[in-house]
Amino acid sequence: MGDAAPLLEVRELTRHFRVGKAQVRAVDGVSFAVAPGDTLALVGESGCGKTTTARLILQLDEPTAGEIRLDGRDLRQLDRAGLRQFRNDVQAVFQDPWSSLNPRMRVREIVAETLICNQRLGRKELDRQVDAALTAVGLRPDHARNYPHEFSGGQRQRVAIASALISRPRLLVLDEPVSALDVSIRSQIMNLFKDLQAEFGMSYVIVAHDLGTTRYMADQIAVMYLGRIVEIGPSEEIFEAPKHPYTKALLAAALPSHPDTPHDREELAGEIPSPLEPPPGCHFHPRCPAFIGPVCETDYPDLDPVEGAGARRVACHLYRGAAVG
């Protein structure tokens, strides 16, 4: 991730929620960067903060602390014109195409929404761009007249993608973009994302719980647990040789692709702790099979580069002695 000029840069991003008297640290000091044309996947289980992180990037929610920079510009300091440009530059595709398309709007208006809100275009130009966006996602221009309920799930997701594409964004945030779709439709949509990325050079931030999907789509992955990144780096390196005990456990828990794939790897015990009361020290220590001692219970390990692990950074005391830099 050492590219000179990342498109998206997230630094010490933090979001705390109040729940009664308690405080949930949904996102707790998360930093990463996404290079132009690159795909970063945020993976983890419920309560890990991946969805909150995505919402913060989309400015659907405000961070408690930390900063988000797009092209080096801090989002908090955007003026009106800058914010408008941000809305053109950053778009999203959500999980459930039944919920993400307004049932009372025609496809034309759904797809054109970003342009309607941010650019003053004539009707002709708007129609031309809607046609182009629908065509790009494999729909027909005359679909613009229809309402969402006239489409199947896969087609609806294509409509959602068309609407995200129309402003020529540079970053797409994809929140579980295929998990609500039928199995035979998923690879169509995943391939569409790949083709669009090749064509338009967009960056993606994907939130996904399915590791197969993640491996297929991502260049970089960030594994999150209870609000923090525990391991981050190039996807292939992590899938081939996970370092953090949680990453290892997550990969071991993934379902096999063939009945003969051995699965007698160590099974992770216990449940995910409530984010209301994350364990002290390393949040993972109560479940950790590699627990090394009191330090795990008291100190949260830094996310540091690890020797022999390439461009990767891992937050685990196991590698502390071997830390470089």
């Binding site: 199995v183 035979s184 995943m190 391939n191 399915d210 297929y216 996807s235 292939e236 379902l255 692709s257």
Partner: peptide
């Protein structure tokens, strides 16, 4: 067409 966690494929066939 199902992506697997065990290896990276360049392109999944789709139906």
């Amino acid at each position: 067409s199902v992506p697997t966690v065990e290896r990276k494929v360049d392109r999944l066939p789709s139906i």
